[in-house]
Every structure is written in C-alpha cells, then in structure tokens.
Amino acid sequence: MKREIAFTLNNEEIAVEVEPNWTLLYLLREVLEMTGAKEGCGVGECGACTVIVDGNAISSCLYPVMEVEGKNVTTIEGLSKEDGTLHPLQQSFIENNGVQCGYCTSGMIMSAKALLDKNPDPTENDIRVSIAGNICRCTGYVQIVESIRKAAEKMKNT
C-alpha cells in the first residue's frame, strides 16, 4: 500500500508516494532518479549512500523512507549553486585529488558537510571521525582529509 510523504529535498518541498518498506536510498535512486548517493553495500557498512537528514549524516540505504516525513534532506545534488558553482567541498575534492574512482565521493562530501555545518573549525581527528563510516579503496584517505581540511579553511575565510 503506497502512502504519500512530504519532506524537503535540497531546499524544495516535495510530496511523493512511497511503499513503507522502501529505504530513503531506494526512493532517491530508483524513484526520483537522483543517483548521486551510491549503493556500495546496501547494509550500512560503506557510507557511499550518505545523505544529510536534519543536519545529520546518515546511511540512506538503512534509513526507512517513512522516517523522512517533514524532515529536511540534502543530497550531493543539492550542494552546488543553481548557476553550477561548486560547493567549496566539491571544489576542494577536485583540486586536492580527493576523488579517484569517485564512488565514495558523494558520501564522503556529505559526511564532511554535516561535520563542517556543525563544526567549521575541525581538527584532523574530527575530520577522520566524521568520515570513519565512509570506506574508500583508492585514496588511502590522505587527500580526502586534506580536501576537507582545505575546504574548511576556505569556508572560514569567506
């Protein structure tokens, strides 16, 4: 039995019919065709599906879709400005080689954004803790941590 839910997705109010057993990731990828959040494992172990719900980075592959009713959801698609200007985190990942294959990137950036929204001046350890649930096989995290650190600096200075 489908039910209608309403929530805010990337600053836009939307109402959509869902099956109660869907996950948020299923709604995003399969129904809304917003495929920035990736399914790397489907069981909450890799972080590739990370989106922000009411300020917290969550694994959307585990998040029941009914739970987003009335909430504020931000995905990677909602980060750059309407004119295409990249968010400082996106820009920094490109400039500092925080991206290789790119499959973890959406999730990494969303975890980092949730951190910087709460803590604009994070230590390296804060950064590492924020992405502890995001697995990357390509980079060894070094340039990801650097991308986040440099983005934080830039955001602080503007």
């Binding site: 917003m34 920035g36 400039e95």
Partner: peptide, 19 residues
C-alpha cells in the same frame, strides 16, 4: 592540474554501471 574533467564525480552526476 586539477581533475576538472571528472567534475561529475563530485556533483553526483557521474554515470557508473549501477546508474
């Protein structure tokens, strides 16, 4: 030189096999 050619990977628009 930055990896601007792969900008779709940071905006969620990159099309992998899963997409």
């Amino acid at each position: 030189v930055p990896r601007t050619a792969e900008i779709n990977k940071v905006t969620g628009r990159a099309v992998y096999i899963d997409e």
